[in-house]
Structure formats: structure tokens, C-alpha cells
């Protein structure tokens, strides 16, 4: 245990010594928030108001609260995974600069070595994503706050799960990388593509039937949906209180991916947690097994 702790401490220290990387990772979600609010806010608003019954008028605060909640859930869904890929550079850097040799000649078990990288990346990513979440919540508080304490706590739980998932996924993918160039390329691809396939940039409900079915196999999708559910629950409840018919609310929930369907069957939030939890366990298991299998260089 001491060994894993020593490795985690080393890895975290190395992460925070690279101040450029840390601050870039930290400001990325804030930049995303500004970009989303500037360029996508109106798209989201128009899409939402067009779904309301004709002649029905909602207060600006509710509309802004709904749009804001949708924005922050999208940003957090993307950030948890992309920041994990950015933060999980150390195991590749160690290969590139030869430090891994010094670690491998010591009697460290491969599982301890892999957990050292995993937990250190988890800590760094969680720190950045929790700060990003605080910024996002401050934004929602400004535009229209309808969340309860339970919603906020569940939102943080969702972030924790998604960061666990993002870190595990990046650990498996980066295991095969051996240079800074490769990891930068992977980071760029993930940053550009993940938002689409997890339903953050565009709701999955807006995709074609075939694509929807394919995407329903990707675990990250359910993480996005969990964030949407907990960020928007309060504002949707308030809309219902103000007289929006239940079927309209269901329509909005469907169109914004709060409700997800796996081959036509509704997936509840409990099942979403289970899917993410099992995926994290499987990915971490695979990552450790890969490290054990590659105990020595071939």
C-alpha cells in the first residue's frame, strides 16, 4: 500500500509541477462555458421554446435556467472525459523519457504501478472537474437557479463517476502510446469527437435511428444523461408547477436525453449508474491486466 501511495504522490506532484498543463486543463471548461453560452445558448433556447404549446409563455428565468442547465450538463459531460485524457499523460511521458525503466527495476508490482497512474490522474481530473462544476453552478445561479441540494450532490456524484470512467478509458487507450506526439493526437481526437458521441453537443434524440442504437452501446452516453437529469430536474419540476402539461415535459425530457432508450426500452437512472459503474470496473480491470501482461518489455 505504501508503494501505491508513494507512486500516487510522485505522479500528483509531477502533474502539478507542470503548471502550464494544469492551468490549461483548468481554464478549458471555463472557455467552453463562454463559447457554449455565446454560440449555443440561443440555439438551445429556440429549440426549447419551439417545443412549448402554442401561446404558452414561461418566465425568462425558467427559460434561462433550463438553457443554462443544459449547457452546464453538456460541458461537464465533455470535460470529465477530455480532461482525464489531458491529465493522463504521465504514463506516456515516463515511457518517453525513460523514467519507467527506473520504476520497473524496483520490486513494484505491475498492478501497483498502474494504480499509481490511475489514482493520480483521477485526483488531478477530479480537482479540475469539481472546480469546473463550481464555475458552472455559479453560472446557473446567475441565469436561473432551480436545483436542490440533492440535485447538486447527485451532480457531483455523476461527475465522480464520469471522471472514473474517463480516467479508466484514457488509461486503457494511453497504455499503447509511447510518445508525447501520440498522446497529443489522441487528446485532440477525443476532444473533438467525444462531445458528439456522448450526446453533449447534440442530443442523441436528434440522431437517426441506426446511429441512436449504436450510441446507446456507449457507456459515456448514460453519464451525459445522468448529468442532464440532475442539472435539469429542478427547472423541469418548476415548469410543471407553472402549468406546462406533463406530456410536454416528457417530450422535453426525451428531446434533451434526460430519458434514454436502449432498443426502445427506457433506461432508468439506477441502470445508468450500474452501466457506468460496471464499465469503470471492467476498464480498470483490463488496464491492470494489461500492465500485468506487460510486466517486462518484449
Amino acid at each position: 500500500m505504501n508503494t501505491v501511495f508513494a507512486l500516487i504522490k510522485r505522479n500528483v506532484k509531477l502533474f502539478f509541477k507542470d503548471k502550464g498543463m494544469f492551468f490549461t486543463s483548468l481554464i478549458t471548461p471555463a472557455i467552453l462555458l463562454v463559447l457554449y453560452a455565446t454560440f449555443l445558448g440561443n440555439v438551445y433556447r429556440d429549440s426549447f421554446t419551439s417545443n412549448l404549446p402554442e401561446g404558452f409563455v414561461l418566465s425568462e428565468s425558467i427559460v434561462d435556467g433550463l438553457v443554462g442547465s443544459q449547457l452546464i450538463s453538456s460541458i461537464l459531460a465533455v470535460s470529465c472525459v477530455t480532461v482525464a485524457f489531458c491529465s493522463n499523460f504521465l504514463m506516456v511521458q515516463d515511457k518517453a523519457n525513460g523514467s519507467i525503466n527506473d520504476l520497473r527495476i524496483s520490486p513494484v508490482k505491475p498492478a501497483a504501478l498502474s494504480m499509481g497512474y490511475y489514482v493520480a490522474t483521477l485526483i488531478a481530473t477530479l480537482l479540475i472537474c469539481f472546480i469546473a462544476a463550481a464555475i458552472c453552478l455559479a453560472y446557473v445561479a446567475i441565469v436561473g437557479w432551480y436545483m436542490s441540494v440533492a440535485d447538486v450532490l447527485l451532480l457531483f456524484l455523476d461527475i465522480l463517476l464520469l471522471v472514473l470512467f474517463g480516467t479508466a478509458l484514457s488509461s486503457v487507450v494511453n497504455f499503447f502510446m509511447s510518445s508525447q506526439g501520440q498522446i497529443s493526437a489522441v487528446g485532440t481526437i477525443v476532444s473533438a469527437g467525444y462531445g458528439f458521441i456522448c450526446g453533449a453537443y447534440m442530443p442523441i434524440s436528434s440522431f437517426g435511428d441506426g446511429l441512436r442504437k449504436v450510441i446507446s452501446f456507449l457507456p459515456g452516453t448514460y453519464g451525459t444523461s445522468l448529468l442532464r437529469n440532475h442539472a435539469m430536474r429542478g427547472v423541469l419540476a418548476e415548469m410543471q408547477t407553472q402549468g406546462v402539461p406533463a406530456e410536454v415535459i416528457t417530450g422535453i425530457r426525451d428531446s434533451l436525453d434526460c430519458n434514454l432508450y436502449f432498443f426502445g426500452n427506457a433506461v432508468g437512472t439506477g441502470a445508468m449508474y450500474a452501466i457506468l459503474g460496471v464499465t469503470v470496473a471492467v476498464l480498470v480491470g483490463v488496464y491492470i491486466l494489461m500492465n500485468i501482461a506487460k510486466r517486462k518489455e518484449k
Binding site: L7, R10, L14, G98, D102, S106
Partner: peptide, 26 residues
């Protein structure tokens, strides 16, 4: 083992490097 080129963590202090490596041997 002393490698051809330094395999220690260059951003970390000498103390931190030695402390971490010592911990790997308990």
C-alpha cells in the same frame, strides 16, 4: 542500476526523487 542517462524525475527535487524510490523498496 545506474542507467546511461538519468531516469529520475527532473522536475522533482533530489529529496523527493530519493524518497519516492526508497518507498518502492519499502
Amino acid at each position: 542500476v545506474v542507467f546511461q542517462s538519468c531516469a529520475l524525475d527532473k522536475p522533482l527535487s533530489v529529496y523527493d526523487n530519493l524518497k519516492c524510490r526508497a518507498a518502492l523498496y519499502g
